[in-house]
């Protein structure tokens, strides 16, 4: 049972980690908690159901399952990246020099707009996607792993590895790290700060879209309200790992998934959601800067 729960928790945690990365990257650069991020994840999930629905409908061209998955992932990620850039351009950039509270409120507003937009455009009903990947588990070390869990872990590892390489190795990644250290100085040495911020939003949003696609395949249910709770939990994961830290978000997400799963099975399924927020409270009391966070010194 332990190994089974470990795998369940890892799959759930990988999803949280993917969403948490978007929170943490934006916070690292703008010190802004992007409350509309959960909605981008929801948009990604809706796109998955739309694209998958089209690809599996009777008239669609005959292509393999892997091709369908890749097409869905790319379309959804690309679309959400565009959403991320537009959200930043319209809701946050005009408030760049405003008081710190203004973009935060703007973020909450953006979240409400997106939720209602999807509700009006797609309806209030829950949408279902019948299983597209065979759901029979595979026996492994005395546990049963579903093909989807392997897919989730593989895609998440790949995407997170790619992100780490991008941030550490590329010029744009370097510019991103410089901007997160000091935005004004970065501007002075010739970095196009606005462009870096746009790219950060696009990357964060496409990661959320990947999470949305994976969740849709995994659970088969989407609704316009799903970004709210997932967003809060991913935010908890980011805080647990230390907000602003990329490895922190990854570790925080996985830890949160494990805690939820072990809590639900060893204590009680009734309190599943409570465990996540208990973690948030304990982190904020015992270690406010999170596991990987640095103590910030207010710049004078």
């Amino acid at each position: 049972m332990f190994i089974q729960q470990l795998i369940n928790g890892l799959a759930l945690g990988a999803i949280y980690a993917l969403i948490a990365l978007g929170y943490t990257m934006v916070y690292g650069i703008l010190q802004l908690i992007n409350f509309a991020h959960g909605e981008v994840y929801m948009l990604g999930a809706y796109l998955a159901i739309i694209v998958m629905g089209l690809l599996t409908s009777p008239g669609a061209p005959e292509i393999g399952m892997a091709a369908k998955l890749i097409i869905t992932l790319i379309l959804s990620a690309g679309f959400c990246a565009a959403y991320g850039a537009v959200i930043e351009r319209t809701a946050y950039r005009p408030l760049r020099k405003a008081a710190k509270l203004a973009p935060l409120i703007s973020a909450v507003g953006m979240s409400i707009i997106l939720q209602n937009f999807v509700m009006l455009a797609q309806g209030k009903e829950y949408k279902n996607l019948p299983p597209v990947v065979p759901s029979d588990g595979i026996a492994l070390f005395g546990a049963t792993v579903s093909p989807l869990q392997i897919l989730i872990l593989a895609v998440s590892l790949l995407v997170m590895g790619g992100l780490q390489l991008f941030v550490v190795r590329t010029k744009l990644g370097k510019a991103m790290r410089a901007t997160s250290q000091d935005r004004i100085m970065a501007g002075l040495v010739g970095i196009n700060v606005n462009q870096v911020i746009s790219v950060t939003f696009m990357i964060g949003s496409s990661l959320a879209a990947v999470a949305g696609v994976l969740v849709t395949l995994y659970y088969g249910v989407v609704h316009f309200f799903m970004g709210y709770l997932a967003g809060l939990k991913a935010f908890t994961a980011a805080v647990l790992g230390g907000i602003g830290s990329i490895p922190g978000a990854m570790v925080g997400g996985v830890l949160l998934g494990l805690i939820e799963n072990f809590g639900a099975s060893y204590i009680s399924g009734v309190y599943k959601d409570a465990f996540a927020f208990l973690v948030l409270i304990i982190t904020l009391i015992a270690r406010p800067s999170g596991l990987f966070g640095q103590k910030t010194i207010d710049k004078v």
Binding site: N8, S265, D273
Partner: peptide
């Protein structure tokens, strides 16, 4: 018991 509207029930099911 389980939580209504929760997407993930694998914890309880494994138990």
């Amino acid at each position: 018991g389980i939580v209504q509207r929760d997407p993930d029930y694998k914890g309880v099911l494994t138990a």
